[in-house]
Amino acid sequence: MFLRTALLVLRKDFAIEVKSREILYTTLLFALSCVLVFSIAFVREGEPLEDAAAGILWIAIEFAGTLALGRTFERERYGETLRALLLAPASRAAIYIGKMLGIVLLLAVCEVVLVPLVALLFRAELFRAPLLLVVLLLAGTIGFAVVGSLFAAMLVRARTRDVMLPILLYPMTVPLMIAGVRGTVALTHTPTDAASAVMWISLLTSMDVVFLVLALWTFEAVMTE
């Protein structure tokens, strides 16, 4: 029942998105603009700075993710549908999980475009250990979506939500970003430093677990009116 509710929420968001593709396209374009802006700072005489690609990749994901989070919940607010969702005789935690999976899915699609592009533009050897990279990206993205969905949901009713979301989310996701960037750097080095990457992945996974438990715990308490 729990899983079915979560998947229903996910399917609902997915169906809306497939029709308009608004959030996917805007998020993707925003991520590309981020990459362009970073290229101004981190390229010297045509050569990208060492290790810059990992940072650019993760910051682009974080910025684009923040935008997607804001838009996803703005859509619910605009249609007054979040209240309907919360009034539905379904577990709040399941609704949260559905929303969170939607963000993970959206960001995963963005990453499919973003990773090869960053590798290409900044001459980074991102695909030396593709499996580890996928796990690292997934663990980081899930962590980001777990914290982000909770905060975006809480901020729906706040007047200042547009500016509050990044203000709250960025300091909170600092350890996720450090682990993501350092792990990616370890994977692009010659020779590939798989041991460090695995260490960062396990740190990310433990963060995901702790944040998910806390989020499921707080979502119920926070979303009651």
């Binding site: 909770l150 706040a158 200042t160 509050m164 350890p175 702790v210 944040f211 806390l214 707080t218 926070v222």
Partner: peptide, 30 residues
Amino acid sequence: VRKYGGPGSDKLGAALAVFGTANVPFIYVS
């Protein structure tokens, strides 16, 4: 959050503080 969060900001702030505190060991390790 407490100042500009509007109605319900007390709970929002509480959730933020709980997350912030849980985050300390991770920031420390990383």
